[in-house]
């Protein structure tokens, strides 16, 4: 098959983390990866994002299949089971909500800006080189650090399961994947009822 422009979106994934390494404010660009899949699902009722435009899925495929960084063993069944997928989605959204709340606290002056990236919701990594205080409002910077942490953590989890199991094992429980498929199913269910 001939390569299309969107077959190179895996480069975007790498670029995103590189940009955020030098200037954390670029983390905001990750909102594209958050909103576009939902728009595809909610408006188009399809998983066009997962199926063609997701740079992260492509990166796992590239590294796992082409660069042979995956053991290519079956993904454990529980990992793609319904309770784990929805459980992880709820956990992920809770952590997202918590991050937004932290942003609010900083914006309201109730907490101070923390120039650090938190990995796996636990380990704090100083990241102060990527931001000079006062460039933008504190809350904008706080959201950047929080969002970047979320993106980096999920990519690291994805890389671990890519290595252990199939290249795209992450996609079996990726919160965006679960959410978009859920939306599509609701939409389809609605159509079935109308018919």
């Amino acid at each position: 098959m001939r390569k299309k422009w969107y077959d190179y979106l895996w480069i975007w994934s790498i670029l995103y983390f590189t940009l955020g390494f030098f200037n954390i404010l670029f983390a905001w660009l990750g909102m594209i990866d958050f909103l576009v899949p939902l728009i595809f699902a909610a408006v188009g009722g399809n998983k066009g994002f997962c199926n063609h435009y997701c740079g992260r899925g492509q990166l796992f495929r590239k590294m796992g299949s082409e660069w042979k960084c995956s053991r290519n063993k079956p993904t454990p069944a529980w990992m793609s089971s319904r309770w784990f997928r929805y459980g992880f989605l709820v956990f992920f959204l809770t952590m997202f909500g918590n991050m937004v709340f932290q942003t609010y606290l900083v914006g309201a002056g109730a907490a101070s800006l923390k120039e650090a990236v938190k990995l796996f919701w636990t380990f704090k990594i100083p990241w102060d080189w990527a931001y000079s205080a006062g460039t933008v409002s504190d809350w904008i910077a706080q959201f950047s650090f929080g969002f970047y942490s979320l993106m980096l953590t999920s990519t690291l989890i994805g890389l671990i399961v890519m290595f252990l199991y199939k290249p795209r094992s992450w996609c079996t429980f990726c919160p965006m994947g679960t959410m978009t498929q859920g939306l599509c199913k609701i939409k389809q269910h609605g159509k079935d009822i109308k018919q």
């Binding site: 998983k47 997962c50 996609c171 498929q181």
Partner: peptide
């Protein structure tokens, strides 16, 4: 999970995703 991995790996274009 409708991830679409099968669409990309099939050389015959035999797979599609039904309404996501």
């Amino acid at each position: 999970v409708a991830c679409g991995e099968c669409i990309i790996s099939c050389r015959k274009n035999a797979v599609s995703i039904n309404a996501g």
